[in-house]
Design a protein around this nucleic acid. Structure first.
Length: 269
DNA sequence: ATGTCGTGCAAAGCACGA
């Protein structure tokens, strides 16, 4: 079984690449973020032609999250219970479902913009809602139920997860409060922490590069190797023990018209 | 900080978000 997460940065602009990626890589489940389409723009038909059931949460030009599955798609939850609003509205940043017996969330954590910005506080509150939901859900499902929070967290967990930590002095994505919020999600149950699965940088087992998942479009970030590992898979032990390999599909960042994010792929036993 | 994208408006360039 193969599970992947990918911030596609517009499902409309990326549809040809998305469909060819699905055909090539054959994931059983794909969690997508930043679809940037309302419901009527979701390409359920073309995805069904490739064998995927899908659900989508989107209402406009920003955000939007979805789940594609060919191993079942049950108990769908649209949005996080207790999710904070921004500008008096709940944004389309979280959808959960059970696929092939695994409880999964597709998450698009707010960017934060600048440390101290209203959006930064919103980001921290969103992360806290993720923590609360995961804690409640895991308690209800039981310790043996495989569970994973996947998506674009917009937080680099470690200094090594950005191309040059010195360039991030005072910036979002690496600040102490963001990392503390991430740790709080992982360690909500100290007896059963979620693991931040560290992928390989590519499908090549010998690849020793750092496994970035995002490179800025501006300033030729990819070409200059200026990446960040901000797309994460936080999984519990029952799911982690079945993961044979985790890798970033760097090739999906190459060529004409890529997303600024590469897919993160988990191959399970 | 920004050399790039993607979106939608009411457009034929701009504002916004990342």
């Amino acid at each position: 079984m193969r599970i992947a997460t990918w911030n596609v940065n517009s499902v409309k602009a990326r549809l040809p690449r998305l469909l060819s990626w699905l055909a090539d890589r054959q994931p059983d489940v794909l969690l997508v973020q930043e679809t940037k389409v309302p419901e009527q723009g979701w390409p359920a038909g073309p995805l069904a032609e490739l064998g995927y059931d899908s659900v989508h949460l989107g209402s406009g030009r920003w955000n939007g999250v979805g789940i594609l599955s060919r191993v079942g798609l049950a108990d769908v939850t649209y949005g996080l219970p207790g999710q904070p609003d921004f500008d008096d509205a709940a944004e389309d940043r979280a959808v959960g479902a059970t696929c092939g017996g695994i409880r999964l969330w597709s998450l698009y954590v707010p960017n934060g913009r600048q440390v101290g910005h209203l959006h930064f506080d919103y980001k921290l509150r969103f992360l806290d809602a993720v923590r609360a939901q995961a804690a409640a859900e895991r308690a209800a499902l039981g310790a043996d139920a495989p569970y994973g929070l996947l998506g674009d967290f917009n937080v680099a967990p470690l200094d090594a997860d950005v191309w040059d930590i010195a360039a991030f002095d005072g910036a979002t994505h690496v600040s102490a409060p963001e990392r503390a919020a991430l740790t709080a999600i992982r360690e909500a149950d100290p007896d059963a922490p979620l693991l931040d699965l560290m992928p390989r940088a590519s499908a090549d087992p010998a690849d020793r590069r750092h496994p970035y998942t995002f490179w800025e479009m501006r300033m030729l970030g990819f070409q200059k190797g200026r990446g960040m590992r901000i797309d994460l898979a936080l999984v519990n032990e029952p799911l982690a023990r079945s993961v044979r390999s985790a890798w970033v599909d760097r090739d999906a960042r190459r060529g004409e018209g890529p997303s600024d994010h590469a897919p993160l792929v988990l191959d399970l036993e």
